[in-house]
Amino acid sequence: MLVQLTKRTLVLLVSLGLASAMVFWFLSVLPGDPAQVALGTGATPEAVAEMQERFGTDRPLTVQYLDWIGGLFVGDFGVSYVTGATIGPLIIDRLMVSLWLVGAGMLVALVIAVPLGTLSAVHHRRPLGTVLAGVSQVGIAIPNFLAGILLIGLVAVSWRLLPAGGWVPPAQDPIEFLRRLLLPALALGIIEGAVLARYVRSTVLNVLREDFLRTARAKGLTPARALVRHGLRNAAVPVVTILGLQLAVLLVGAVVVERVFVIPGLGSLLLDGVANRDLLLVQGVVMVLVLAVLVLNYLVDVLYTALDPRLRAAA
């Protein structure tokens, strides 16, 4: 177990190192010098050079990279070239909003996927199973911004049940926070739930064919109880792996959904940064997104070993 954990942690650290170098390099080769952008097209070369010195962009790329990465270790993402604001606290603020959204979206997805997938596996080759599989197919085909717009149109505009967008921090007003979280979480989670339901369905189908499930029934468990007691945890092992991969998809989905629901999350920050050519800000946000995906995958790997005793043996 300890060996496995050490290995996984090493892999995580190496991936983070590589990812940070790639993020930095990709953004530095993009055309458009930040100093030039900040000063506008009419700036004299002397002014641009002075600005480059102030930003530190006149130094060699490796020095700039090491400076940036060193800052990340202490939470210093630098100062925006465009607005002059400190980037670190801004990202942390927005990250918390996005994490709420992604977490709630994942919860919605699981609440949909586990029963839907399990039911359609159990009713495999019977009418209900086919209907449920069809429903999840339709779900997969809908992009989440469309789901968001439909939800706003129905729930917020036609029925006037919930606000159409905006954000209230949970500490300020928990009830209003939930009211505003619900629709975007649904927009994000329903689609994800449909995708996940297909994985749940196929793993449950596999588990249903397992010998140990027949043993469970031979012991006197009804089919339903045998599946719940012996099947679902076994099915959870591959589903958790997929969950890790899908979290990345969900983070990307959140960028779009935040736009639709006017939520000040990391996604909105990223899009604003791109629009303003705020290089350092974009770099920081992308790095945080990469970090989130890698750390989540790392946690999933750890969870995976906790679920399956066979993986605990040092291989």
Binding site: E210, D211, F212, T215, A218, K219, G220, D308, R310
Partner: peptide, 24 residues
């Protein structure tokens, strides 16, 4: 029937490698 299985009817299967729940 479930009430009889495991109580009045017991069964040992051929494949010991796959007949037990690996996670329990």
């Amino acid at each position: 029937r479930s009430g009889l299985r495991g109580r009045r009817l017991g069964m040992v299967f051929q494949e010991p490698m796959t007949a037990l729940n690996p996670l329990m």
